[in-house]
Design a protein around this nucleic acid. Sequence first.
DNA 1: TATCTTAACTCTCATTATCAGAGTCAAGAA
DNA 2: TTCTTGACTCTGATAATGAGAGTTAAGATA
Lengths: 172, 172
Amino acid sequence: MRSKSFEGMVCPIAGALSAIGDRWALLILRDLLAGISRYDDFRRSSGVTNATLSDRLKHLEGAGLIERRRYQTGPDRYEYALTSKGRDIAALMPVLAELGDRWGVSGAAEPPLRFVNRATGAAVRPGFIDQETGQPVSAGDVKVMEGPGADDVTRWRLSHRRRHAPEEAPSA
Amino acid sequence: MRSKSFEGMVCPIAGALSAIGDRWALLILRDLLAGISRYDDFRRSSGVTNATLSDRLKHLEGAGLIERRRYQTGPDRYEYALTSKGRDIAALMPVLAELGDRWGVSGAAEPPLRFVNRATGAAVRPGFIDQETGQPVSAGDVKVMEGPGADDVTRWRLSHRRRHAPEEAPSA
DNA sequence: TATCTTAACTCTCATTATCAGAGTCAAGAA
DNA sequence: TTCTTGACTCTGATAATGAGAGTTAAGATA
């Protein structure tokens, strides 16, 4: 419905993007993680328009990432909360934030956000963890491969690795 | 230009989303990371339409995430490659992929993609690393706080923490 | 009693973006 | 001479977006 298919694609990345919706939805999720829960506060926070906000909230609810609940009757008033499924996107925010800071597009000279260890207050950064050693792995040492659920398109996509790139270092 | 402002927001997340563009752009970046570099291959990979693909490639080039280069003259033919800046989004893919798998929206019963340690072949997962201890931190122990570059809106946003949520466990 | 405010929306209308598909262009192959 | 490849641009119909006005119900204010 919203823009083109994305339906029928065998790809967890496309699937996740589809469930999320679009950039406005991501800002709404950011706001929810920051503690915002009410319609007008979402508006104030991001400047999203009524039509878009209303639509995205419904989409996120339909995707099971948020739920709408009444917090007052007569005038009924509703607020929104992340479901446990929705809380999963917390993993995405530090990564996006780090990209924004690195690329110098955060709108400020220094990082507007800090992610810390709740227990110690130490800075925390997104990274990768080796599931066998439990130790961090540097980003450069992470490789994508087809998984058990890969289909032909996925395999075709991944088969482009060194095909048209004789100038790339042919390591590993 | 594309949709509304996002300009002037002090938020690294909004900034990163703005630089990336939209979901189609993310699929293009995914494809580039998979090794795809040519126009028609992007089309085949995601089914994106000409107008959209053409526009997104220009946007990504304008954002400095990819570069267009001629690989043949007379008929001039071009291909696209990630810049070093563009390669940063590699950090995002495993996170999105994990969300897609977890949410059951990958389009397959099992994960279509696997991220592994290039050296050992061991599975690798996105996570968080404590910058003081160098050790992994569980997602639940990560907290967002305002950083040195926070503005009033950012502080206001983060101030909603426990305001309208007496039912949430008031821990930490 | 009459207005005002809050909160969560819906409606309208003008502007943009997107989809699907056809067309372009140059060179080498059939 | 026609066909194919590859990287696009153009077109016309449909859908999404942005800006802003309107709605609704209750309690506060005057």
